[in-house]
Design a protein around this nucleic acid. Structure first.
Length: 516
RNA sequence: GCGCCUGUAGCUCAGUUGGAUAGAGCAACGGACUUCUAAUCCGUAGGCCACAAGUUCAAAUCUUGUCAGGCGCACCA
């Protein structure tokens, strides 16, 4: 938590200088290395209160710092109203020595979180889009657990309803040599299911094994059918009715979701007496709220984002206003994935079966590259997954770049035939060594950053940058031909960096090979 | 028409929640293997952050509007 530590120094410095208390300030890492290791803009925020220019305040803060015990080991330099901080090498060492890449300070308020993702209908194989939610969801689970939350991961199986009936009759038709019913499933995979005692369960099991191939394992597979079996849908509608949010119209039963910000009311029971998908979803979310504890997170594709307001409305009506906030109920909308094969976009349709399955992609490029590509993009940008690029074992493919940094460090141990040192004397640091150390010290901040923002892609970029610094150090700072003390120092730094890469990759469920 | 997301180097994307001269990879160009793995490194070049107003000491970042693209607006799931 190097940033938090610096922020505390700044708060103390302001107190020592002006005898006033301020909230924890933002700590930046300047892009320009001349400005030092860290920078803060506190002076700008104090101008009104102190009636001084930011330049004067920054100057006064830095003047105080020169004689201030709390500033030992740090150079404070004012520039343009910023306070720039440069850590002495001794202080960098001190921080680095106590830093453990595998230790994370837990959040102050750990939450119990129910994370639902993928939840694909068991009417066809998973494709790259499902793969994206699978990867993002599993990374999020690990990140949230890593910072101290308790996370229950769940796949909702829509094993009931019209689509399932159509799917079953499509399988039966193929088996019996009859024409596939209108609106049914025409995919080639259907014929692989004709001998299955239960095609729906067979498809679900296929999902499970596909996901396992990319390291995704769910705590629970929640069957929609079980909601019907125990009358949970009627119960949920009963709760809504008791809350006065249900009415009859046009021979149907409606939920007045407009009371909760939706733009139109929603049907619960159709005029033919059947429940809508939404009604069943009410039961599901009621069940989830009962189990969730503190927070529910759903990950959905952008093609369902229009569904969000009615679900937020329903969650509120069933669970109370305390479930209205995003801190209790969050829907992560992931933008869609386009697939490029041989430079051509592949149009996918489950109905016609024209598709490239996730299994086929994993067959071609492996789990590591698949996961890395899907994890590195922000979930709210639409992406194109280019199979040819992902396949390349070259610098076009950053997963190998990061893994190679790890493998290269391991190669040194093999060559030297020694174990990694767990301590070192502190020789003079060159820039490359120092850069690796400073970047490593932010690892914990970055885990929190990625977890808090539900953004695994930040971890990916942290690792790419760390790999870059490690490669640069590897090139510039030889080890084998170096005198023993310096050799030990370099190995010690690289070993911690290696564990950092390994830990970061593990959070993404990507392997850290010892040789490539 | 309404709603959500996106628009940053030729391409793919970052941008630490409002900070200083906007970054990286690929592609291009020029260098570095008798050396711990060249799946690497070093350097050069590349920009009206879609456009326009506004907010303030400060905007790629926040507000509003415009334009362009993706997705969605069911008694389907």
């Amino acid at each position: 938590m190097i940033r938090a530590w610096i922020a505390t120094r700044i708060v103390d410095l302001v107190a020592a200088t002006y005898d006033i208390a301020i909230p924890s300030p933002a700590i930046d890492m300047p892009k320009n290395p001349d400005y030092g290791d860290f920078a803060t803009n506190v002076a700008f925020g104090l101008t009104k209160q102190l009636r001084k220019s930011p330049m004067a305040i920054a100057q006064e803060l830095c003047d105080t710092a020169t004689t201030w015990a709390g500033g030992a080991g740090i150079d404070f330099v004012p520039l343009n109203g910023f306070v720039n901080l440069k850590l002495h090498d001794a202080l960098v060492w001190k921080q680095f020595d106590v830093w453990s890449p595998t230790t994370v300070t837990p959040v102050s308020e750990p939450k119990r979180i129910l994370l639902e993702y993928v939840s694909a209908n068991p009417t066809g194989p998973l494709h790259i889009g499902h793969g994206r939610w699978a990867v993002i969801g599993s990374c999020l689970k690990d990140l949230l657990v890593q910072v101290g939350h308790r996370v229950h991961s769940e796949f909702y199986v829509n094993d009931s309803g019209n689509q399932i009936a159509l799917f079953r009759s499509s399988v039966a038709a193929v088996r019996d040599g009859r024409p596939i019913p209108e609106g049914g499933y025409f995919g080639a995979y259907i014929k692989d299911l004709i001998d299955a005692p239960n095609p729906v369960e067979a498809m679900r099991a296929a999902h499970e094994s596909t996901l396992r191939r990319i390291g995704v394992v769910f705590d629970q597979w929640f069957s929609e059918q079980t909601l019907h079996d125990r009358g949970a849908v009627a119960d949920a509608i009963g709760v809504l009715r008791d809350a006065g949010t249900v009415y009859q119209a046009d021979h149907a039963q409606w939920f007045r979701s407009t009371d909760f910000g939706d733009d139109k009311d929603r049907v619960l029971t159709k005029s033919d007496g059947a429940y809508t998908y939404f009604a069943v979803d009410c039961a599901y979310h009621a069940d989830k709220m009962a189990r969730a504890g503190d927070r529910m997170i759903n990950i959905w594709g952008a093609d369902h984002h229009g569904y969000v307001p009615r679900v937020r409305a329903m969650v509120q009506a069933l669970g109370g206003v305390e479930w209205a906030s995003e801190s209790r109920f969050k829907v992560v909308i992931g933008q869609l994935v386009g697939l490029l094969k041989n430079g051509e976009p592949v149009r996918m349709s489950k109905r016609t079966g024209e598709m490239v399955t996730l299994d086929e992609i994993v067959d071609e490029i492996g789990s590591d590259a698949t996961r890395f590509f899907l994890a590195m993009k922000s979930s709210d940008s639409a992406i194109e997954f280019d199979i040819e690029v992902a396949k390349k074992k070259s610098n076009e493919n950053p997963v190998f770049y990061v893994q190679y940094a790890h493998a290269r460090i391991c190669a040194i141990y093999r060559k030297l035939e020694i174990d990694a040192p767990t301590s070192a004397t502190h020789e003079v640091l060159n820039d490359a060594e120092r850069n690796v150390m400073m970047w490593c010290l932010q690892f914990q901040d970055e885990i929190h950053n990625a977890a808090d923002n539900l953004a695994p892609n930040r971890m990916v970029f942290f690792l790419i940058e760390l790999a870059r610094l490690v490669h640069a150090m590897y090139e510039s700072s030889p080890i084998l031909k170096t005198e023993p003390a310096l050799q030990r120092q370099r190995l010690y730094i690289l070993e911690k960096a290696r564990i950092c890469i390994e830990t970061g990759l593990r959070l993404l469920r990507i392997s850290a090979p010892i040789a490539m």
